[in-house]
């Protein structure tokens, strides 16, 4: 047990060290959602009228609406980026070092997930701090209440990235996955527009958005930000985390995953 915890700490610390060494990555990860918040949202403010739906109890500006979605965006991009680093790692061979540690494989993969999630959450709070400087702020307890939601959403998206990385042989294939996973996941969700808006345009698109686990991760964060709780979102996010986690474990099973990855 002690050995497992020492290993966990080392994997998380290594993720943090790698992150510190890549300062551009930190800046890029912050610039992306800030551009959406300060430019895109400003432009769309007038175009998108929002009605009062839970968890909101009063009219809100569009900038306020998309903050949980942009937190989700940070977690989504980071989850994919850390799996990109896994593909890179495996090509570089250091994934072999991790996987030959005499510990259960699920523990090693989960350590890696926790490490990347911790980094993502730091970025989320840095983003919230900058947003607050621009006057987009929330109740103080809301900042604390979103922490467990961010952890769960981060684990879910990290597990998805991990699962994808086990099926991708080379870095080049990864660009395709970015297009086929990140963009559909982000746009077919409640991150940028409420689902009832989507229903006005297309019932089918609405249903796809409603089934997208990313929608539920974003809603979990949105409700938590207002000290509200959305049990359905929690259930969906939990189930998706378990499903993606199981897929990742299967992908890294020596009986198949690494064989294909060679």
């Amino acid at each position: 047990m002690k050995a497992a915890l020492i290993a966990l700490r080392a994997v998380v610390a290594r993720e943090a060290l790698r992150f510190i060494h890549q300062r551009e990555r930190f800046v890029a990860a912050l610039v992306r959602p800030l551009v959406w918040l300060l430019v895109f949202a400003a432009g769309f403010r007038a175009a998108l009228g929002l009605s009062i739906t839970p968890p909101y109890q009063t009219y809100i500006t569009y900038e306020t609406y998309i903050v949980p979605g942009l937190l989700g965006m940070i977690l989504l991009f980071n989850g994919m980026q850390s799996s990109l680093s896994l593909v890179y790692d495996r090509e570089m061979g250091s994934m072999k070092v991790l996987l030959t540690a005499p510990l259960p494989r699920w523990w090693l993969l989960m350590s890696k997930l926790l490490g990347s999630t911790a980094i993502s959450i730091l970025q989320c709070y840095a983003f919230l701090a900058i947003a607050a400087l621009f006057g987009i702020d929330f109740a103080p307890w809301g900042y604390l209440a979103i922490l467990p939601a961010l952890v769960l959403a981060g684990l879910m998206l990290g597990a998805l990235g991990l699962a994808l990385s086990s099926f991708i042989k080379q870095l080049e294939n990864f660009a395709g996955v970015m297009n086929f996973v990140i963009f559909p996941m982000f746009f077919l969700s409640s991150a940028l527009y409420p689902l009832w808006k989507m229903a006005e345009s297309s019932r089918l698109l609405h249903d796809i958005c409603a089934a997208n686990p990313f929608t539920h991760a974003v809603e979990l964060i949105r409700f938590a930000l207002y000290l509200d709780f959305n049990p359905l979102a929690l259930l969906w996010t939990l189930l998706a985390t378990l499903a993606f986690g199981a897929l990742a474990l299967w992908g890294y099973d020596p009986a198949r995953g690494m064989k294909r990855a060679r």
Binding site: I6, A10, R14, M92, G93, S94, K96, V97, P102, L108
Partner: peptide, 24 residues
């Protein structure tokens, strides 16, 4: 294939490997 982390020092690489085996 090489499996060291190029951005870390020799000691940091070794500490990481030791920790993966429960040595700290």
């Amino acid at each position: 294939q090489p499996t060291l982390d190029l951005d870390l020092t020799v000691t940091q690489n070794l500490r990481y490997a030791a920790a993966l085996r429960g040595i700290a």
